[in-house]
């Protein structure tokens, strides 16, 4: 009986943490001019979702990789590369979005696939492979953009011309019904899709098996190489998706976009409670992790906290979350 209660509590602990954070934020929230709680407005909630969506999309792909016992440091750079590539194609080269979107997603998946191939085929540590890709993809971003932001105003024959924003940028940057951000929908859809993939497909179950015990998985007939390569390819694909969202929200392709985002994505996965050693965790936990970071960030921003205090708070929360999960397992 006690075991059962503990199991239930254990399983929903991340949810409890999320609820606690939410209540805390609401209690601490400043009021606007009319005395209303600024945190508890629909606007604040959707703003948070918009800002976190890029990290969230990265974290969704990252979760698959971490479940398989790996890590992907290259997602921030792949985000930057695809943001630039997409802006370059649609703004500067007038490629219609119908072609540019699949091309950029394929580019991201391909770079992720290279990660996966190197990890699976040569058995190089994922940390090293994706570290190399992190540097290479950032280089590619600067190569395509020439180091400048790829924006609607650019030099042509010595004169500055301004092009209109491609409609796809406005579509992704829009809010449904004037309130719900489209990038938030993209993020939630990515979570839902990969949640299904991790839970209900053979591919997902193989990732859990590999992360749990790679040798055992291999012996029981799992095609370890393919499953791993697939995880990295999906992670690259998600990074590309986040790249499109980034370009749309900045209305330009910034070659520096996404720098250090990989760390926030990993932090979200860890705060959720997915084990970095692999084999244990889930996509819904990652959603919780993203929301916890988002809420904390939101309340610190609303209250106008200093950068120094924000960084310390974020670090402590990561540590705290991991400690809580440690207790849970003992």
């Amino acid at each position: 009986m006690t075991l059962k209660i503990r199991q239930i509590l254990g399983a929903s602990r991340p949810l409890l943490i999320l609820a606690a954070v939410f209540v805390l934020c609401a209690a601490l929230s400043p009021t606007d001019g009319q005395g209303a709680n600024t945190f508890l407005t629909w606007g604040s909630q959707t703003n948070m979702l918009r800002f976190m969506s890029e990290y969230g999309i990265l974290a969704a792909g990252m979760t698959l990789v971490i479940l398989s016992g790996g890590i992907d440091l290259s997602v921030g750079s792949i985000l930057g590369f695809t943001a630039v590539l997409f802006s370059w194609m649609t703004i500067w080269k007038d490629v219609p979005a119908v072609l540019a979107v699949p091309a950029c997603l394929a580019a991201g998946a391909a770079l992720g696939g290279v990660n996966g191939f190197l990890v699976a085929r040569f058995r190089i540590q994922p940390f090293v492979v994706t570290l190399a890709m992190m540097v290479v993809a950032r280089g590619l971003a600067k190569l395509v953009s020439g180091g400048q932001k790829v924006s609607t105003a650019f030099e042509q024959n010595g004169d500055f011309v301004t092009k209109p924003i491609p409609p796809f940028f406005d579509f992704l940057n829009d809010r449904i019904g004037g309130t719900f951000p489209v990038v938030g929908v993209v993020f939630l859809a990515a979570i839902l899709l990969l949640w299904g993939a991790a839970r209900y497909t053979l591919f997902g179950r193989h990732l859990y098996a590999i992360g749990g015990n790679e040798e055992a998985a291999r012996l029981s007939g799992v095609r370890v190489g393919w499953a791993k390569a697939g995880a990295y390819a999906v992670s690259g694909l998600m990074a590309a998706l986040a790249g499109l969202c980034d370009a749309a929200q900045q209305q330009q392709g910034d070659p520096e976009a996404g720098a250090t985002y990989e760390l926030d994505a990993i932090a979200a996965v860890v705060i959720g409670g997915t084990a970095l050693t692999g084999g244990r965790g889930s996509m819904s936990l990652t959603l919780v992790g993203v929301l916890v970071i988002g809420y904390i960030d939101q309340i610190l921003s609303l209250k106008g906290f200093d950068q120094s205090q924000r960084l310390i708070a974020k670090g402590l929360i990561i540590l705290g979350a991991v400690l809580l999960q440690k207790r849970e397992r003992v």
Partner: peptide
């Protein structure tokens, strides 16, 4: 009425401005 360190970054500035907008009607 509101200030924030945006570290020269556009996404940061957009987020901070959202906070300012939700707190100050004018």
């Amino acid at each position: 009425v509101f200030d924030a360190d945006c570290k020269w970054l556009e996404p940061e500035a957009r987020k901070e401005m959202e906070s300012a907008l939700s707190r100050f009607p004018a």
